[in-house]
Design a protein around this nucleic acid. Sequence first.
DNA 1: ATTCGTTGTGGTATCGATTTCAATGGAATT
DNA 2: AATTCCATTGAAATCGATACCACAACGAAT
Lengths: 330, 330
Amino acid sequence: MTIQIKDVARVAGVSPSTVSRVLGNGPVSAEVRKKVEAAIKATGYRPNLAARRLRSQHSQTIGLVVSDIRNPFFTAVSRAVEDAAYKAGMRVILCNTDEDAGKEAMYLSLMQEERVTGLIFAPTRETAETLDSNKLGFPVVLIDRAGPPGRNDAVVLDNAQASEILVEHLLSQGCRHIGGVFGNTSTTGVERHAGFVAALERRGLPAPARFIAPSLDAAESAIRQWLVEPDRPEALIASNGLLLMGALKAARQAKIEVPRDLLLAGFDNDDWTDIIGSGMTVLEQPVYEIGRTAMAMLMARLESPELLPRKIVLSGRLVVRGSTIAGVAT
Amino acid sequence: MTIQIKDVARVAGVSPSTVSRVLGNGPVSAEVRKKVEAAIKATGYRPNLAARRLRSQHSQTIGLVVSDIRNPFFTAVSRAVEDAAYKAGMRVILCNTDEDAGKEAMYLSLMQEERVTGLIFAPTRETAETLDSNKLGFPVVLIDRAGPPGRNDAVVLDNAQASEILVEHLLSQGCRHIGGVFGNTSTTGVERHAGFVAALERRGLPAPARFIAPSLDAAESAIRQWLVEPDRPEALIASNGLLLMGALKAARQAKIEVPRDLLLAGFDNDDWTDIIGSGMTVLEQPVYEIGRTAMAMLMARLESPELLPRKIVLSGRLVVRGSTIAGVAT
DNA sequence: ATTCGTTGTGGTATCGATTTCAATGGAATT
DNA sequence: AATTCCATTGAAATCGATACCACAACGAAT
């Protein structure tokens, strides 16, 4: 039996409506407001958000559905989203899909039951194909991976450009035989691969690439295998932080020294890349800004639902470190 | 205007009560159940969780309040908590306090408004002192940092023991002049310091220690300063992953080579510790298990509220790597 | 002096589900 | 054949807030 609004009303000697108006900054005389606020303090009243949501039809909740919060990219994004959400008086519900379309469907359904105000979502390729914000009943902002163009709002990195920047950098280091490893579940891997191929073909160079499941073990063993083949590349680009770590471990295992025997670069300026040996060259994504932008985009969409879907493309930043500078120890 | 339970009832030709019973696995004849399920599918009905929560007085929501989700320790714990929660049909609300007592108070208040079923909480020392689950109105399980004994349920590492294990290891490597750096906001730092001191005093050795704010920059500069003083230790223990990284960066800056000029060990088996040079020696916390245990404890508490508060103490595991083995390059 | 707005307040309906209680019908028991 | 019992079902109350509407009081405008 907790305290409810009518208890506060009784203590303050006003009606429940008036208490509600005080809570919601409605029109109340200064004197009554003071009485009510005193009564709230005296009773220790806490509004029941379930009741408020039901009556007001505003959940003040946004969903954040990612593949795995342990991926530092999503960790950083989620922190940005939460900061922005709480500042706007909203709650965040976080779900991990593990790149599983079944779980995605389940959590989308949950989002509907929660009547979320909006959703920030990093879908698998499969789900991105068929996702339709109108059917869902709330606006969606895709992050990291955009679906078919013009259908949903999205905040993404310029993946092709980013790959090209990395390739150009390796080319400028004198490499000609550059390999790439890419994740096989998201559109991100596809786009980064495209940029990779474009940059190399422009020079008439081959663009050997492999697509790998996004797990450390899978990456490590697949890359190790590649590195012992006779045609192993002299430089490698990894399409995300996890694959980059896998590549490094694989090189270690194969007794291939970075950068002496293999130049190595990748995406995501994760903490470890800065402290390892002479550092890993990475293409940094503006992780916090991606989250912040996604929230801002969602808010904008809520204000003007009729706007055409927008896609905000952010640029990465090349951070050159020792792993791509021949003649430096790692 | 969304579909509600009475629409489903009309389509199925039954009463809303019956639909509700189908949803809640109540007593319904097989034939009616089939009709209702068909109607649910036909209408695309999604229950409104706000309404359900209000009426049933069960929020099916648990709060998870940590200092910063970007700390890999909390990231891993949160993933475990979320896995367990969703498996039990519960939602998780995640909040970041940044070790700020003011934010903690605000989020505790939010938890009350959400009428959470329970809370998993890593409090600052300040808040831990005065926290009272009874006043809050829902059970609390503390993680990482326990408050005053016998007051709240808690899942923690055996911090003193863990420190002693690290000290013993360094002693066995021949070190006698061992320093320690500890976080200054949580009880964890205090306990780890105590174990550190105990292990050294037992041998009649000094136990020089510093308490540092838990940020990478603060750690780096404080430790760099220490390392250029004349009495700098020959080995250093860092009380968490962040401080350990700070210590490593500080050593680099001061041109002090690990492990040749300084042995370095610390808490938290974060990903990077395994791939850096010849590896960092760490005391691994069972991160996923901590989260899982906290959830299990919360469930147990909900079943039997009258049980006396319990404190579950888990043990860490020493992972020896190159950073504490003299004569190995990093 | 009358009308009109404006401001502040209270009463009541309502949000969308679950829960309680009563009613029904058929099988089982005496 | 009458009675009891169980399994299903429906009607209505309820969870705790906000939204909507009506109305009182008062000053300004005609």
